[in-house]
């Protein structure tokens, strides 16, 4: 498939994910505005960070006592999912220069990763991934700007609904990947259940790590059994 066709397919496949991100961006923009952050700075954070989970989390760390190291450690704990996606994407981006691959990394998110991994057509995966990621980023930024401008006009019910739609988005991304890859349900279910159990006794980030570890054990046994 040519670059242009791959680009078009990337945009098309990512459209629903981009709109979803845009809706979530509205909530982020409104949250930024409620703290007195300008729409321009909120949008800049989206462009430079492009990770909704860490951006939302850090909004709660701007009050006294402000601590840059705490923000750095929290960001690292929340962003480790991006590391795993980076590892997974390496295979899809082979054949491109290191500069191109590294320059494409800022658009790596749950949505762009899921769309690329789930794509079965013989596309130019680099072009597909970059176009999908840029499209999601464009609507994420637009949603944030809209949310910042509409802040105060949004009803509490709408804000509450948008907040949970982040969970819906993640659940649907998971279903998308599971449906289109041979991974099966066991690994992610083991991760989810372990994270639930571990988060009862451990801080949430450690519960998350325990969940990922449990999932990796299930995958490893699955691989060995298949061999």
């Amino acid at each position: 498939m040519s670059c242009a066709q791959s680009a078009r397919l990337g945009l098309r496949r990512a459209t629903s994910l981009a709109i979803s991100s845009g809706l979530f961006g509205i909530l982020y923009g409104a949250a930024c505005a409620s703290l007195g952050i300008s729409p321009a700075l909120a949008a800049l954070s989206c462009v430079l960070v492009f990770s909704g989970a860490v951006q939302f989390a850090v909004l709660g760390m701007l009050a006294d006592p402000f601590s840059a190291p705490v923000i750095a450690v929290s960001s690292l704990l929340i962003c480790n999912r991006l590391f795993l996606m980076g590892v997974s994407m390496a295979d899809h981006l082979r054949g491109r220069s290191w500069a191109a691959r590294l320059l494409s990394m800022p658009v790596l998110t749950d949505g762009a990763w899921a769309a690329t991994v789930a794509e079965k057509a013989p596309v130019d995966r680099f072009v597909f991934f970059v176009c999908a990621g840029l499209w999601i980023l464009a609507l994420w930024v637009s949603g944030t700007l809209l949310g910042a401008l509409l802040a105060g006009r949004l009803e509490p019910e709408v804000i509450s609904a948008l907040r949970f739609s982040g969970v819906l988005l993640l659940a649907l991304l998971l279903l998308l990947v599971v449906r289109n890859t041979p991974m099966g349900h066991a690994p992610w279910m083991a991760s989810a259940l372990t994270a639930i159990a571990a988060s009862q006794v451990l801080p949430l980030p450690l519960g998350f790590l325990a969940g990922v570890a449990a999932g990796s054990v299930i995958i490893w046994f699955g691989i060995r059994r298949a061999d």
Binding site: R81, S88, P187, W188, A190, S191, A195, G207, G211, V212
Partner: peptide
Amino acid sequence: RLFNVLPACAMGAVLGPSL
């Protein structure tokens, strides 16, 4: 294969406590 599936496990681990 392990690293291709791990991001989905990470999503599951984030989702679990929210559910």
